[in-house]
């Protein structure tokens, strides 16, 4: 039971990251590499603030704002300076590596004995789960409402068909920048939760997290195939939790933890390719029948 709850709790923390990446990767159609940097940025800003006795909730909020700044920079690089989407993200991500070390002053900051949002209840596992659940549900509902507003709808349409949105009089650059800011603040929030739950922030905590988030998104999409926007968000969150259970399972089978990234990459690649492979198979079956 304890393992079940702690795995779920971990999944909920990563669900926030997956939701953030869903905004760029699926809604905006923008492969945003900033995420790994902004996750670490959130984690380190929050850790430094908390170790200086700032209120944990306030620290999360401030960290989220710094994350949105990272998104702003990527957005400006891409829309105003016309640098390719993926390269803009990589540039910001690399720059953030140095910035994060500057923020922490060293490669990691411990939160041992400090107050965190997870110290509401006596039992560590239960508070991890409850706090993770509440934050995740609140953010999910905010996103759901936001993407139903005029502005949110315009962002979705920009990702779907940018030329049409310009013809409809929308400033698509602004829409993209805004979506990147929202996405990266979600990544930063996820980073704050990771560092608080593991008790330290580390300069490498972001490495490989994009692939984890992508795997979560595609797992979620494979499980829930509804078109309603709310269901898509729920699918992403559930995908993140499912991913944690898969990892828990393969580790118990005796997989070397250092092989996890390879495993995650393979799972993500297979699931991303699946729809196309299915199409090819269907086509060849048809042609054989004919």
């Amino acid at each position: 039971m304890g393992v079940l709850i702690s795995t779920c709790a971990q999944g909920l923390i990563y669900a926030v990251l997956a939701l953030g990446l869903f905004i760029t990767f699926r809604i905006l159609n923008f492969a945003d590499m900033t995420a790994e940097g902004s996750l670490t940025l959130g984690g380190s800003v929050c850790a430094v603030l908390i170790s200086n006795e700032v209120n944990p909730a306030l620290s999360i909020l401030i960290a989220a704002l710094t994350g949105s700044l990272a998104g702003l920079i990527t957005g400006i690089l891409h829309t105003k300076l016309k640098i390719q989407a993926i390269l803009s993200g990589i540039l910001t991500m690399i720059a953030l590596y140095s910035i994060n070390i500057r923020i922490m002053g060293k490669a990691n900051v411990s939160l041992l004995g400090k107050n965190t949002v997870f110290k509401i209840f006596k039992d560590n596992q239960i508070s991890n789960f409850v706090v993770g659940f509440v934050i995740c549900v609140v953010l999910l509902e905010i996103l759901n409402l936001f993407f139903k507003t005029r502005l949110g709808l315009a962002i979705r349409a920009t990702g779907d068909n940018e030329q049409m949105m310009r013809a409809q009089g929308a400033n698509t650059d602004f829409k993209k920048i805004l979506a990147l800011m929202i996405s990266n603040s979600m990544c930063a929030i996820s980073g704050t939760l990771i560092s608080q739950s593991q008790g330290y922030a580390d300069i490498n905590m972001g490495t490989g997290t994009i692939v984890i988030a992508l795997a979560s998104i595609v797992i979620g999409e494979a499980v829930i195939r509804k078109n309603l926007f709310l269901y898509k968000l729920i699918a992403v969150a559930l995908g993140a939790i499912t991913y944690r259970f898969i990892i828990f399972f393969v580790l118990n089978l005796g997989m070397n933890p250092s092989d996890l990234k390879l495993f995650t990459a393979i799972v993500a690649a297979i699931l991303l390719a699946l729809p196309n492979v299915q199409k090819v198979i269907q086509r060849s079956v048809k042609s054989v029948k004919n």
Partner: peptide
Amino acid sequence: LRNARRDLAFGI
């Protein structure tokens, strides 16, 4: 919404 502000009012 072509001439309207794309604000936080409900899209539909």
